[in-house]
Amino acid sequence: MTVALLYSITGFLLFLMGICGLIFRSSLIRRALALNITASGIFLFIVAQAYKGESALPDPVPHGLVLTGIVIGASATALMIYLIGVLRYVSPGDNDSGEEE
């Protein structure tokens, strides 16, 4: 098994785990964490594709893409956390601990 394949599979499994967390956890903070795990899986997959072996130079284009992705992901997560904070005070069903439905 090559290094690229191993890390690609790991990235794919991370992606699946993140998606499962997104579906099956109801806590919003946990969902934000799950989205971050999903993103990490995608990044790992892309960067594993860029890896060309011990002596060869890696492909810098995917690295550039992932670098911008990490920064965008971080700011999107900050926005998510902010919106979760807003939701705490504006959602009507929040006071009675989500009893309806």
Binding site: Y7, I29, S40, A48, P58, H63, I81, I84
Partner: peptide, 29 residues
């Protein structure tokens, strides 16, 4: 793992952002 995959630029960004800033934001939340 970014370092392992020859991507030190990503390792720097991940350590500062993914682990640092985002972790702190989640802790505050």
């Amino acid at each position: 793992s970014w370092t392992r995959l020859d991507a030190p630029d990503l390792a720097l960004a991940e350590a500062a952002l993914g682990a640092g800033v985002i972790g702190v934001l989640f802790l505050v939340a």
